[in-house]
């Protein structure tokens, strides 16, 4: 048996990670490696981004694309992680599903915020305005509001078990917004350009822009994965502290603690 499997006793199923202690051990082993890969991808992605030529129309502002587009993709990916976690709560009742959903929300909100801000900064020189209420921008702003609403819901209901089901239902209702964001540029006339990478007829970006974009997207995805594991670990620890505090308070009430 390899060193890793002997330490964490991995079984080939998601059920193997249902035990938070086993999950924490896995995170402890994985995190340093994930950081190495993430940092290497960011170095490669930034080098490619700044080595890319200027766009004939956009000039150097095309470099904003290499940070704006991955932010938007990861913001939507984070939401899909929350959707699968919500199904984990409602259907499979996996013990870590609610932890995963709650841990992804602030990260998703931060990436959505970044997508909005970098898009706005890119829009000013290219469109002549910081903001327009077109379908793509508005639906993406709605995503940020959904994230903030979910964070507020989790904060409002202190007991994690009581918050899990309403939050999961809220997440599944909010999932309607994800295809709206994706297809808004096709369904309505928008100032925002149509999709140029994920298209049925292939990407329309030239390779000197596509490569830096894809490497940066990979770097952002790895960063999200790494941060998600960190925030899941933090959430497990928060629940342990809370549970210990409640147990201690109950014992004190019963006079069992001196």
């Amino acid at each position: 048996m390899s060193d890793i499997t002997s330490k964490i006793a991995v079984r080939p199923s998601l059920g193997a990670l249902a035990n938070p202690t086993r999950f924490l051990n896995l995170v402890r082993i994985l995190l340093p490696w994930l950081w190495v890969v993430t940092i290497a991808l960011f170095i490669a992605g930034l080098w490619l981004s700044f080595a890319a030529p200027e766009d004939y129309q956009q000039g150097r502002t095309v470099r904003i694309m290499f940070i704006h587009v991955p932010s938007v993709w990861v913001a939507m990916f984070a939401y899909m992680v929350m959707v699968s976690s919500a199904l984990g709560v409602l259907v499979w009742r996996h013990p870590l599903a609610d932890v995963a959903a709650r841990a992804a929300a602030p990260l998703g909100a931060a990436f959505t915020f970044l997508g909005l801000i970098t898009g706005s900064i890119w829009g000013k020189p290219m469109w002549g305005t910081w903001w327009v209420w077109d379908a793509r921008l508005t639906s993406f702003l709605v995503l940020l509001i959904i994230y903030l609403g979910l964070i507020a819901l989790w904060r409002a209901i202190e007991e994690p078990a009581a918050a899990a089901r309403p939050a999961a239902v809220f997440i599944l209702i909010g999932a309607i917004n994800v295809p709206i964001i994706k297809f808004s540029v096709d369904w309505w006339n928008t100032l925002h350009q149509p999709a140029s990478v994920f298209r049925a007829d292939g990407p329309t970006l030239s390779p000197e822009f596509l490569w830096p974009l894809m490497v940066m997207a990979l770097a952002y995805s790895m960063l999200f994965l790494t941060l998600h594991l960190m925030t899941m670990r933090n959430e497990i620890l928060r629940r342990r502290i809370r549970s210990l505090q409640i147990t201690t308070a109950r014992r004190a009430e019963r006079g069992q603690v001196e």
Binding site: T61, R63, I64, H68, I117, T118, I121, W122, K124, P125
Partner: peptide
């Protein structure tokens, strides 16, 4: 525009 977007990120 480019430096502020990278800086904020």
């Amino acid at each position: 525009y480019v430096t502020s977007s990278y800086g904020i990120t």
